[in-house]
Every structure is written in structure tokens, then in C-alpha cells.
């Protein structure tokens, strides 16, 4: 039962990493799109693709938090009392990002747009970084069972920094692939080229950091390293192959296939982390079973998850289909 709840929780992490990640990454490209004139068209595409979906994508984070504190309350408290710095910064970054984005849509003067746009874009980079350091802190066992761990070293350490940088890069990668596909769907060849170059750059960057990360994990989190290369190996391979395939096919493949490959690359590596970490929720000291809530709570969560599956997944599919068909657009 507790394993099942952990899987549901982890599915939320995956969905947030992929869907929320694509939104964060779009902010990264927005930030680096250049001056007002040069960046106008890419920013417009980003704006149009993001506007209808970002809020729904964002709810995955709420889902993860709620699942965590209900199904694994003590682990939640331990994480919150240890990693409060990056978590607090991420929370504020989320406010800045969401409101900056919503305001920018309304603004007309360039200077106002620039200000709100900068708020949106900068926080889109910082927030995944901080969330990545949180993942690193948990994975490398720096959150003690009782909480109140070291407020600084729990997230300023090799694994955390690796997690933060990888989070920013993978977000940028997924977003660039998604936006390439979107530009192709709209027959905007120049924008397609623009994003394709960036997708390639991000892929190379992510690959390089991931390779370097092997050494970091070996030194800093030996158990995670071992399990990644044993139990997690198939997933690591799937991730690498999908990533390579998406890069190789980026100029040719159908938009949908491209998107699927990018999703698979990110989802597989995160799933690899989950598999490597099992059966522990925190590092190598607190198991999922030990921190789980009483069975009726887990059963209630299962019911909620099943209802969510039945209602949310089709609705979300409808949203994505409508927005990809250009049925949803802002004015």
C-alpha cells in the first residue's frame, strides 16, 4: 500500500518535471531571446503556447506537495525543516513567475512588458534550480529522519548543485523541443530553426552535465550511483537513447514523435532516480514504509488518485488537444 502511494507520488513528480519543466524551460528561452525587437517572435510563440496550459501544469506541484504531506507526513516535515531555504525561494519564485506571466499578457508598453517579462523569465530559471537542489538533497541523504538538518549544506553540495543545473538544462531542452514542434505545426520555418538550434544546444549541454554528473554521484552519493547503474540501468539507457534520437530526428520527425522522445528522455532518467532510491524515501535511512500514514489514509488517497485518473487525464488531454489545434488562443 505504501509503495503504491509512493508510486502515485512519483508519477506526480514525473508529470511536474515534464509538463511544468517545459513551462519553466520556455521561460529560460524567453529570458535569453535577446532584445525587444529580436526576441519578439519567439516570445510571442512562447506566450501563445504557454498561456492556456501553464496553470494546469502547475497543479502537479500542488499534487506532489499534498500527496507528500498526507501519505508521508514525517518525511514531509523533515524535508521542510531542512531544505527550507531552497523551498522558500522556490515558493516565492513561483509567485513571481505566475504573476509576471499573467501581467505581461495584459501589458502593452514595451518597458512594462520588459519588466514583467523579466520577472517571469528570471524566476523560470531560478525556481527549477532550487527545486533541483531539493531533489539532490533528498537523494544524497542530507535530510535527517527527524528533520532540522543543516540549513545550508543540505542544498549546497555536489549532488544538489548537479540536480539544480540538470533541472534547468532539462527544462530548457524539453521546452526547446516542444517549441520546435509547435513552430513546425504552425509552419513558421524561421522560428522552427531558431528553437531547433537551441534544442540541440540544450541537448549537448544536458548530456555533458549528465556525464560529468556520473563522477559527482560516484564521489558524493555512492549508493545512488550504484543503484542507478544496476536497478536503474535500463531506464538510464532508455533516457540516453531517447535523448539522442530526439536530437538526431529534430529536423525531420513529426512534431508529436519529437515531443514523445523528449518526454521519454526526461521521464526515464527521473524514473531511474526513483527506482535507484527505492525503498527509501529519504537518502538511505528513511524507508517509504516507515514514514507512511495509516492504511485508511493511503486508501483514501488511492480513491482520490483513481478519480483523478478518470477525470483529470481526459480533461487535460482535451486541453492539450484543443491548444495544439489552435482552438485556444489569447487575444
Amino acid at each position: 500500500m505504501s509503495t503504491f502511494a509512493a508510486v502515485v507520488l512519483f508519477v506526480g513528480v514525473l508529470a511536474y518535471a515534464v509538463l511544468g519543466g517545459a513551462d519553466f524551460g520556455a521561460g529560460f528561452w524567453d529570458l535569453t531571446a535577446g532584445g525587444a525587437e529580436r526576441g519578439r517572435r519567439p516570445r510571442h510563440l512562447i506566450d501563445e503556447t504557454l498561456a492556456p496550459v501553464w496553470e494546469a501544469n502547475h497543479v502537479w506541484l500542488i499534487f506532489v506537495l499534498v500527496m507528500l504531506w498526507t501519505a508521508f507526513p514525517t518525511a514531509f516535515a523533515a524535508i521542510m525543516t531542512t531544505l527550507y531555504v531552497p523551498l522558500g525561494l522556490a515558493a516565492l519564485g513561483i509567485v513571481l513567475r505566475g504573476s509576471g506571466f499573467a501581467f505581461r499578457k495584459v501589458m502593452v508598453r514595451t518597458d512594462q512588458q520588459r519588466f514583467t517579462g523579466a520577472a517571469f523569465a528570471a524566476s523560470s530559471v531560478l525556481t527549477p534550480f532550487f527545486l533541483g537542489t531539493v531533489a539532490g538533497g533528498i537523494a544524497s541523504g542530507r535530510v535527517p529522519t527527524g528533520g532540522n538538518g543543516d540549513g545550508l549544506r543540505s542544498w549546497v553540495n555536489p549532488t544538489s548543485l548537479l540536480g539544480g543545473v540538470l533541472a534547468v538544462l532539462t527544462c530548457a531542452f524539453v521546452a526547446a523541443v516542444f517549441l520546435t514542434a509547435e513552430a513546425r505545426r504552425r509552419d513558421q520555418a524561421d522560428l522552427e530553426r531558431w528553437f531547433r538550434h537551441r534544442a540541440l544546444g540544450a541537448a549537448v549541454g544536458t548530456g555533458a552535465v549528465a556525464l560529468a554528473g556520473i563522477a559527482v554521484l560516484h564521489a558524493d552519493s555512492p549508493r545512488l550511483f550504484d543503484e542507478l547503474l544496476h536497478r536503474g540501468l535500463p531506464l538510464v539507457i532508455v533516457s540516453a537513447l531517447s535523448g539522442l534520437a530526439s536530437v538526431a530526428l529534430i529536423g525531420r520527425a513529426a512534431p508529436r514523435l519529437l515531443q514523445a522522445l523528449a518526454v521519454a528522455a526526461v521521464a526515464a532518467i527521473i524514473a531511474g532516480w526513483g527506482v535507484a532510491q527505492y525503498p527509501y524515501l529519504l537518502g538511505t535511512h528513511l524507508t517509504i514504509a516507515d514514514t507512511a500514514a495509516p492504511t485508511p489514509t493511503l486508501a483514501a488517497l488511492t480513491v482520490v488518485a483513481a478519480v483523478a485518473l478518470a477525470l483529470v487525464v481526459p480533461s487535460m488531454g482535451l486541453l492539450f488537444v484543443l491548444s495544439q489545434r489552435g482552438q485556444l488562443q489569447s487575444h
Binding site: 496553470e55 504531506w69 514531509f76 483529470v312
Partner: peptide, 25 residues
């Protein structure tokens, strides 16, 4: 949260479901 999350959290989990649908529609 650490002590009562197992009980207190349940309504929040249901709330999350509604938020999802609300944001989508």
C-alpha cells in the same frame, strides 16, 4: 503536518483534484 498530516491532509488531497479540473476548464 508531521503529526497530523495523515488526517489533516485528506481534504487537501480532494481539493487538489478540484483545482486540477478548475485550472483546466
Amino acid at each position: 503536518m508531521g503529526r497530523y498530516g495523515a488526517a489533516f491532509g485528506i481534504p487537501f488531497a480532494i481539493e487538489g483534484l478540484f483545482f486540477f479540473l478548475e485550472a483546466i476548464f
